[in-house]
Nucleic acid binder design. Structure first.
Length: 343
DNA sequence: GGGCAGCGCAC
DNA sequence: GTGCGC
DNA sequence: GCCC
């Protein structure tokens, strides 16, 4: 089989600093999240920079002539600029080294696993003395978590599954995801009360690898309970992570693919598709623009902040239009810069 | 110096 | 109500 | 932490 040329791999030789720094800032973000809610915005800031670096085409050292130069990059401010320069000059970031000493650092990598947030990890550390992944696996085997408050059966099952799966990188190549997506669409379309269903997320954006499969389903509320039951019946997921009347999250197939389905009204289809297609950066940019215009945007539509009136949401096109933006095709909804104001 | 999204589901 | 993921 |  012929593989398409991968841009990332072409430039990988020049972006080694980006990768290393992206990882460090990701780890620092985890440290701050672990420290508690008062640090959560700091954590977000570090996570943002981590993502910016991961997506950057050229090596960060090309912009690292001065703090001022780095500061021009969105998401990077004075403090992180200094840390980037420190890293390029010394190979280390002192603040990071100190965080490592201060916190149960090996434990924090578990935050990369779905279901493990800061609070959960603090409880595990403080109540059971768990310091790393191995400790946790052992504690789970010995059923030591069962007594803990807030650790119900479903949560434990999900934790065990996530822990097992996390070892293998579960992102699949686009083509495989497209095949699986088409298969699921076919099955769900066979359900009578489903008025409409479409793929969203990174699969719709045609990202080169896809982590999970997102779908938006249109149905009236009175049919939703039955639809969810029917979906489970025809798809026969390996696991159900969460099920309600507006949301279904499950693990499907031998590859253990996570599938998330949102159930919405027909008039919310556009806003739900826009929202769940992402990317995250693109959404944040849209939110900011909406706010500048006195509007608020979410998966249910665009609203006038003052009156609360719903202004749009049936189609994506009308939403971009309302915001005074050119329509952006899903494939191009990559970052904040992919949003263009109309002239 | 204030805002940084806010909602559904598990518990 | 809190934690978590999205 | 960053942005406005």
């Amino acid at each position: 089989m012929v593989h398409p040329i991968n841009k990332q791999s072409l430039s990988s030789g020049k972006t080694t600093h980006n990768r290393a720094l992206s990882l460090i800032f990701h780890k620092m973000a985890e440290c701050y999240r672990y420290m508690g809610t008062e640090e959560r915005f700091r954590a977000t800031a570090y996570e943002n920079v981590s993502r910016v670096l991961a997506n950057m085409k050229e090596d960060i050292s090309e912009h690292a002539g001065s703090v001022e130069e780095l500061d021009e990059i969105g998401g990077i401010g004075e403090s992180i600029a200094e840390k980037i320069i420190e890293y390029l000059q010394t190979g280390k970031i002192k603040t990071f080294e100190e965080l490592k000493k201060k916190l149960p650092f090996d434990l924090l990598e578990l935050m990369d696993i779905s279901g493990f947030g800061p609070s959960t990890l603090r409880t595990l550390h403080e109540k059971l003395g768990i310091n790393n992944r191995d400790d946790l696996v052992k504690a789970l085997q010995e059923n030591k978590l069962n007594k803990l408050k807030g650790f119900g059966e479903r949560k434990l099952t999900n934790m065990k599954r996530a822990l097992k799966m996390e070892k293998s990188n579960n992102r699949m190549p686009l083509q495989l995801a497209e095949e699986e997506g088409a298969r699921l669409l076919r099955l769900i379309k066979s359900i009578k009360a489903v008025e409409k269903i479409a793929l969203a997320g990174s699969l719709r954006r045609k990202k080169e690898t896809v982590g999970d499969i997102d779908m938006v389903l249109v149905a009236v509320p009175r049919n939703r309970k039955r639809i969810v039951e029917e979906i489970i019946r025809v798809i026969q997921p390996q696991k159900i992570l969460a099920r309600g009347t507006t949301k279904l999250s499950m693990i499907v197939g031998d590859r253990e693919t996570q599938v998330d389905i949102r159930l919405v009204h027909d008039y919310e289809f556009g806003s739900a598709m826009l929202y769940f297609t992402g990317s995250k950066e693109h959404n944040i940019r849209l939110r900011t623009i909406a706010k500048e215009r006195g509007m608020k945007i979410n998966e249910y539509g665009i609203f006038d902040v003052k009156t609360g009136e719903r202004l749009a949401g049936e189609t994506e096109e009308e939403m971009y239009e309302l915001l005074g933006l050119n329509y952006v095709s899903p494939e191009k909804r990559i970052d904040a810069e992919s949003v263009e104001t109309k002239d």
